[in-house]
């Protein structure tokens, strides 16, 4: 029983990071109607940027965070412009394969960079964010934990307000509803999709900061499976729904933490598999997710 609350905290941490990444997936999927396979790798690029800024360049932390967010946003923008925009209107298969190509390109570029610069692609951060900790009874909650939860909650509420209240947000809603009609109403579809990609990548950068602060490592392949689990979270909550992505992320994170903590050691080697089993079950039974909308295919 004494493992229960620490595991729950672990799950909330992991789940909050998943939630931030899932927000990016859900927005891009909802608006551009494409699965951005490279989204997970944007986190990896963000984490490497942090690593280079902190360990090699010794920049102040606030500047490091801004640089990471900027690098990821610009990356998201460029990828969308160069790889995805030319394919708008062609088959979904072509877009998906291109996205896989982009994901592999980013991974291998990072691998090449890390190998030539540091000799190894998995690198560890020295703990760069120390916020003290809070002790309640037997349970210790670190400042980083609080930071992760608060950031995720603030971003979720912020995104919901942004979509509902601002002009750009409403343009996004319009584009996700009907691209053609939105264009006729004077919405600049290309610009809206670009903004979506930039926001999604910025969220991925924030996720990478929180990930690095909590787990303190970076690796060229860290984004690919992580990203797919986050996509699982987005699907779980219902694609297109912002609170759904956060709920899905937290649920997947908690399930993963509990399966790692409570299953016997011999089964633990397959802990990665459990998130995917949940994904398959979820997609098979309820593809629209918890908070998603049902759509029917028209002829």
């Amino acid at each position: 029983m004494e493992k229960l609350i620490p595991t729950l905290i672990d799950g909330l941490n992991l789940g909050s990071v998943y939630a931030l990444v899932a927000l990016g997936y859900t927005m891009v999927y909802g608006i551009a109607k494409m699965l951005n396979f490279a989204h997970g790798d944007v986190i990896m690029v963000g984490a490497y940027t942090l690593f280079v800024c902190i360990t090699t360049l010794h920049l102040p932390l606030w500047l490091t965070f801004i640089i990471a967010i900027l690098v990821c946003s610009v990356l998201g923008f460029i990828v969308e412009k160069l790889a995805y925009k030319p394919l708008r209107g062609s088959s979904p298969l072509a877009v998906l394969i291109t996205a896989i190509g982009v994901s592999y390109l980013l991974q291998n570029l990072a691998l090449l960079f890390a190998n030539t610069k540091y000799g190894m692609d998995k690198q560890f951060f020295s703990s760069f964010l120390n916020l003290g900790s809070l002790k309640i009874g037997n349970v210790t909650i670190s400042g980083v934990d609080f930071l992760i939860w608060i950031t995720t909650a603030v971003i979720m509420v912020g995104m919901m307000l942004f979509i509902k209240k601002t002009k750009t947000g409403r343009a996004m809603l319009a584009v996700s509803e009907d691209k053609g009609a939105a264009q006729l109403m004077g919405v600049n579809v290309n610009k809206t999709i670009s903004i979506t990609f930039i926001i999604g990548s910025a969220l991925a950068a924030i996720a990478s900061i929180l990930f690095a602060a909590k787990y303190q490592f970076v690796e060229s392949t860290m984004g690919s499976l992580f990203g797919i689990k986050a996509f699982a979270a987005a699907v779980f909550g219902g694609i297109g729904s912002i609170p759904g992505a956060v709920i899905g992320g937290v649920i997947i994170g908690i399930i993963e933490a509990f399966s790692t903590a409570f299953l016997p050691g011999s089964v633990n080697a397959a802990s990665d598999g459990f998130a995917f089993v949940i994904l398959i079950i979820m997609l098979v039974l309820k593809p629209t997710g918890l908070l998603g909308k049902q759509t029917t295919e028209k002829v």
Binding site: Y29, A232, L279, L283
Partner: peptide, 11 residues
């Protein structure tokens, strides 16, 4: 489409 691709990947 995308969902099928993801399920096969997960599989």
């Amino acid at each position: 489409g995308d969902y099928l691709a993801i399920v096969t990947l997960a599989f």
